[in-house]
């Protein structure tokens, strides 16, 4: 079965190949033909890899898992754009109908000091985990929680929290930012918890601690270019960064932190 209007593409791929973390890497050219516009971008890479294996060349390593845009595992730079040309879209949700016959597609890994390349298009994003470890939670043990309705949350506050909590932790914000800044990621978690009554107790401690870890992990500074917001597949807004700035200032200037 194919959708009406599906076409076949021939593509020139330029893919970053790097054998390991400490090895040199380079862009390598591949010709790929017979790609249906119904395919997803990752299925296109699957086909390339099948062809490489048949030829005896090691397949391209790339991270992916759910292939429906929620796990945040996938993510590559496609012609210099994080997750490719579409807004609010992860690499796995990008479809080949977005490309034209004869296109050249340059595929590179996320690049940031804090995200070292593991192999080919795979990078190590554990810096994000360490940021969350430094305070991105509500300190509540299992058991003994009050009845859920005992903590009322106004509908609009919940929506605000949900919009920030939608972050999938893919790292596109860092990858697309000209400064490799992680502010959008950090701000999403800070805003999520700061918007809810549950997050109030640790509000100041959390933001100070998370920002300190973010700085320590060698992410760059935010210069308010807004590129992260445009690249974010989960629609996290710049207003979160403003809130992060506010939260941080309040915490440092007026709290005990």
């Amino acid at each position: 079965m194919s959708h009406t209007g599906s076409k076949i593409l021939n593509l020139n791929l330029q893919i970053w190949r790097q054998a390991g973390p400490d090895q040199p890497g380079a862009l390598k050219a591949y010709q790929l033909s017979g790609i249906s516009t119904d395919m997803s971008f990752l299925e296109m890479l699957d086909i390339l890899n099948e062809q490489l294996i048949a030829k005896g060349e090691e397949p391209v390593a790339f991270d992916h898992d759910c292939r429906e845009g929620i796990c945040g595992t996938c993510g590559v730079m496609i012609n210099g754009q994080a997750h490719g040309p579409d807004n609010a879209t992860t690499t796995c949700q990008l479809h080949m109908r977005r490309f034209n016959d004869g296109d050249t597609i340059v595929i590179e890994p996320w690049r940031a000091k804090a995200f070292p390349v593991v192999r080919d298009l795979v990078v190590n994003r554990s810096a994000f985990d360490r940021i969350i470890q430094s305070g991105g939670y509500v300190s509540v043990n299992t058991g003994g929680a009050p009845d859920a309705n005992a903590i009322p949350v106004a509908g609009h506050k919940q929506q605000e929290a949900m919009a920030a909590a939608a972050c999938i932790g893919c790292g596109a914000c860092v990858a697309s930012c000209k400064n490799a800044s992680a502010m959008l990621f950090v701000s999403a978690k800070v805003s999520h918890l700061a918007s809810l009554p549950q997050g109030q107790t640790e509000r100041s401690k959390r933001v100070v601690s998370m920002v300190a870890t973010m700085d320590k992990e060698q992410f760059g500074n935010c210069t308010n270019t807004g590129e992260c917001e445009a690249a974010c597949p989960a629609g996290i807004k710049l207003t979160n960064i403003a809130q992060l700035n506010r939260e941080y200032m309040k915490a440092v200037l007026f709290s005990g932190e």
Binding site: V140, A145, N149, A154
Partner: peptide, 20 residues
């Protein structure tokens, strides 16, 4: 208890306008 626990953690479950 699961719902109670998750709400305490800050899971943003959908709410009515009144907050429940």
């Amino acid at each position: 208890s699961i719902i109670d626990q998750c709400v305490a953690q800050g899971v943003p479950f959908a709410r009515e306008y009144g907050g429940s």
